[in-house]
């Protein structure tokens, strides 16, 4: 029975399924890359061409020199805003998770139960009051509006609390004997042992923010503060008619950074999805 299970012939069905799935996943990406090297005339043709006859980087030149298309700026904005947001989430949520996981204080359970319930409330409810607050603070069209409103990430607190609770109590007790205070225990015992969980959370908080569209649309308005997804949606509405290869070049250029990050951290990202249960949209 067993040898049959592991012989390659036995698994041809599995390979077939994976080949089909891989083709479905890759086909749109291949078309995008391939047609971004075509000219406008070549793209607007039936039947569509899969490979360019004379590959040209014209569309990349256009997308990088267009007055109202600022991919470099948008990419920088996206990275800065997502990076700032990730940092804010970690600074705010890690200590809170430590308090919930390890410290006894009146209201611990009640407070945590309240947080549990709030995770059921969708983000749309807070959009309008927070938008008006941004306006009153004069934060519209600034990075502050992209960084602070979502920084109290309840999910991050849950995840880290769960992880901190698994760290053996004895390690902290040893630090107490050495005279460490609460902050010392948090800083020198808990944090160094949690780098995996914290990195996983950071990656997903970062990716989630990098890909967000709704909030950046409503709080940014000038070309200079837009983030990549918002910028791409603007390209689509103003250039979809004639300049298709240019749009596809924009897609390639804006997706490349994420794919490079993915190529480097793929194992961590894959593990992180499972660990955090995050990554769904």
């Amino acid at each position: 029975m067993n040898f049959k299970q592991y012989s390659p012939y036995r698994n041809w069905g599995t390979y077939a399924v994976l080949a089909v799935l891989s083709a479905i996943v890759l086909f749109p990406l291949i078309i995008t890359v391939s047609q971004s090297f075509m000219t406008n005339q070549e793209v607007n043709r039936w039947p569509p061409k899969i490979l360019p006859t004379a590959p040209t980087v014209e569309s990349y030149n256009t997308v990088l020199t267009q007055q109202d298309v600022r991919l470099d700026l948008w990419l920088r904005n996206s990275l800065l805003a997502a990076g700032g947001y990730t940092l804010a989430v970690l600074v705010i949520c890690t200590p809170a998770a430590y308090a919930f996981a390890r410290l006894r204080f009146p209201g611990n359970r009640l407070l945590f139960a309240i947080l549990l319930v709030t995770i059921m409330i969708p983000g749309q409810v807070t959009l309008i009051p927070n938008f008006l607050l941004m306006r009153d603070l004069k934060w519209l069209d600034t990075f502050n509006a992209l960084i602070f409103p979502g920084a109290a990430n309840v999910f991050g607190v849950f995840l880290l609390r769960q992880f901190f609770m698994q760290i053996p109590q004895e390690l902290e007790e040893a630090a107490v004997l050495d005279g460490a205070g609460y902050f010392g225990r948090f800083r020198h015992v808990i944090l160094p042992l949690s780098t995996n969980a914290i990195t996983a959370l950071a990656i997903f908080v970062f990716l989630g923010h990098y890909n967000d569209l709704f909030w950046p649309i409503i709080v940014t308005s000038s070309l200079e503060t837009r983030t990549l997804p918002v910028g791409l949606s603007i390209i689509q509405s103003s250039y979809a008619g004639q300049y298709r290869p240019m749009i596809l070049a924009g897609v390639v250029l804006s997706t490349l950074p994420i794919l490079i990050v993915y190529a480097i951290f793929q194992r961590r990202i894959i593990q992180g999805v499972t660990l955090t249960g995050m990554g769904g949209r």
């Binding site: 949606s233 689509q236 596809l248 997706t255």
Partner: peptide
Amino acid sequence: VLLYIPQLMSVGAMGLVWNWLLSTQF
């Protein structure tokens, strides 16, 4: 790793790709 790639695209990029793939004419 391969099958997880689409998930990493932003809705902006994915939207532009599919708007084109689903075009009636081309």
